[in-house]
Design a protein around this nucleic acid. Structure first.
Lengths: 162, 162
DNA sequence: CACATAAGTTAGTGAAGGCTAATTTTTATA
DNA sequence: TATAAAAATTAGCCTTCACTAACTTATGTG
């Protein structure tokens, strides 16, 4: 019953409570946005439309539309011509998305996938891993760490083939 | 340079050639449809709108729309009020989707994920694994098979934690 | 064979999510 | 401070993908 579990439950409740942000694709987009917004705030001090647009590969106008949806759904706040902030719920969603992203990426790297592919695939996979799978990834990382300590054993052959 | 590689290249060429079926979400939907159509043809002898609708959880009308798009994009053929067939290109796409699905599912099971979660997650993950990651999964399955033969070593602890 | 039911299709609606072009606001700088 | 550039917004358009309701075609059974 740790902090992450609490957040996970909050996210589940959130998903159930809000009629909107209901189907998988919308949830994915919401997660991508709040995760990116959190990263921008941490890295730049603020998240602006133009930064999101650049990183997501869409136009400012598209980001603007999406931000309005996210605001309607209670995940972000922003006043016209000002930068974007996460609500408490948005922050929780971002945290849990980041955590999954981090684990998936680390898992793929531990499995022997090159860093670029691992990052690219983690981006897509993070939205589709159940708790059961995420736990399996965590377990594997635990064992991989243990093997790291006493070298000589198998750790994913033929790294870097792309 | 095996048969699967040839198909993979064909799929890549297909994706590049057709202006349509261009973005990730559409590609995923196309893969889901052709994979399901292939399964239905193998299992029932034919793929009908009503079967697709039932399995995908959408209405007949929605399936109809999508089938028209897939037909436009050269992946399926169907005459009004008749069942649906895959084109050669559709069949190749279905094959490669099935192969990825199979590997992802087997990999998750080998990692200790329960069968139901593995199946559910594979459905989503299969669309997001690069060749590099798929190779890593295959390698792990190879090693897991080897360990299977001489028991006693690690094979994913604490199975069955939904 | 008639006709009820199942399956498939069409028409019309709506939201999501993308774009461009035009406009407004903010910011930076000459 | 005036003004140019950057950023944000709005308006209008498009496709996808979902729905319901109404209709047509196929199918199976009395």
């Amino acid at each position: 019953m740790n902090a992450i579990d609490n957040e996970k439950q909050a996210v589940v409740r959130l998903a159930e409570r809000f009629g909107r942000v209901r189907d998988a694709h919308q949830r994915e987009q919401a997660e991508d946005y709040v995760e990116l917004i959190a990263d921008l705030i941490d890295g730049h001090g603020e998240a602006r439309v133009v930064d999101l647009a650049g990183r997501l590969g869409v136009t400012n106008a598209t980001v603007n539309n999406t931000i309005h949806r996210l605001q309607r759904d209670g995940l972000v706040t922003s006043k016209p011509y000002r930068s974007i902030f996460l609500t408490e719920e948005g922050r929780k969603l971002a945290e849990s998305a980041r955590e999954r992203h981090r684990i998936v990426r680390a898992f793929l790297v531990a499995l022997g996938v090159d860093a670029d592919s691992a990052e690219a695939d983690a981006e897509g996979i993070e939205h589709h891993v159940s708790d059961a799978t995420l736990d399996a990834f965590r377990r594997y990382l635990g064992h991989a760490d243990a093997r790291e300590a006493k070298p000589g054993s198998f750790r994913g052959a033929r790294q870097g083939g792309a």
